[in-house]
Design a protein around this nucleic acid. Structure first.
Lengths: 207, 207
DNA sequence: CCTACCGATCGGTAGG
DNA sequence: CCTACCGATCGGTAGG
């Protein structure tokens, strides 16, 4: 009587909605500050009903993290392999990552804020032995072999620096990310390049 | 009877201890996940007793944030004003900030994670009209006037990039931060510099 | 997918 | 600085 005709979405559809809403709420507040109650409210179901889709709150978070990681890491691997010299590939990685993070805000934010909390076992299983910094580091090493990246750079340190910068852009929303991205790519890669590498960059027109 | 001789520390001393412990707990877990109960336990008093020192949990966090900001911003202003050309001053700012953040881990972590949550009014009152990026941007603009910083750079974007990098170092703990710092300063500033600026940097020996 | 409920813990207060 | 307590909310479960 209280719920005359219970509108019941198809399971798969509802599950996607739960994920979308959870990503929103987790990113607005933090994971800790977010409550399943609020997620349920926004989805339009009762809190108890959430447990037909999830096992625990933490599992919901972990699912979101895994999802983003798997998708993004695959793309990333392709960019690292595809055409051109080391500088061109680095530029593709930076650009691509930058745009993806600008696209789907909530999910990316959850990923960034919560990866660290995956318990070590799950992390290891997920990442295997190759992390984002690793992929960057390999291309940077190739760039050093080609003579376009400054040879004295520590490849791991350089990789981390690039990643941090790329991933920070989504917090800004100052300039239209389109232009900001181009400038940032230039600045980041210039910092790592030899004069020869800078020449390549200057000819690339990354805006 | 339960507490035969209540060891009562001097108020000021206890207050400092509360701040230290709170910074620890807030940085280990997040602010949201941290409980006053745990802080009280580590301090060695009852939770209710905390309220002789704080008004609310949020006020405790805000106090920590303010404290760090005030100290660091003063130092920062000095580095921005002190000796040398724009490149030298930028280097001093980057280096100094880098070292401070490496020093007192917990407090800095709390600052970074929680500044955004200061309500806008408190933020405005605290920051006035000059923020960290502003200070950087001013020196960068001077560097452009001197011809040592690439003239096409957006000063605000560049400032943010530098800050992000500098503040990310405390998450790494890979290489001894001493050496890492030197490399990072070089890489960051090279990315922003004209050939002339790069020359100055090369002569500086920042390790 | 809901109702109805659980134990635990949260921030905070009163009164001493 | 403690004891004793408050209302609210948390994640999660049982049974339908």
């Amino acid at each position: 009587m209280q719920h005359p005709t219970t509108f019941r979405k198809p399971r798969a559809e509802r599950w996607q909605q739960v994920l979308d809403v959870a990503a929103e709420v987790f990113s607005e507040k933090s994971y800790d500050a977010a409550s399943l109650q609020e997620i349920a409210d926004r989805v339009g179901i009762k809190k108890g009903s959430l447990f037909n889709y999830i096992q625990t709150k933490a599992a919901l978070r972990d699912h979101l993290v895994r999802e983003v990681y798997l998708k993004e890491f695959m793309l990333f691997s392709q960019w690292a392999r595809d055409g051109g010299g080391a500088i061109e590939r680095l530029a593709a990685m930076v650009r691509g990552h930058l745009e993806d993070f600008a696209e789907d805000g909530p999910r990316m934010a959850v990923y960034l804020n919560e990866v660290r909390r995956l318990d070590p076992a799950a992390r290891k299983q997920l990442f295997g032995n190759r992390t984002f910094p690793d992929l960057f580091a390999e291309v940077i090493a190739q760039g050093q072999a080609e003579g376009v990246i400054r040879p004295e750079l520590d490849a791991e340190l350089a990789s981390r620096a690039i990643l941090i910068l790329v991933r920070s852009v989504h917090q800004w929303s100052l300039a239209p990310p389109r232009e900001a991205a181009g400038q940032l790519v230039q600045t980041i890669l210039r910092g790592h390049s030899t004069p020869q590498g800078v020449g390549i960059l200057a000819a690339m027109d990354l805006t």
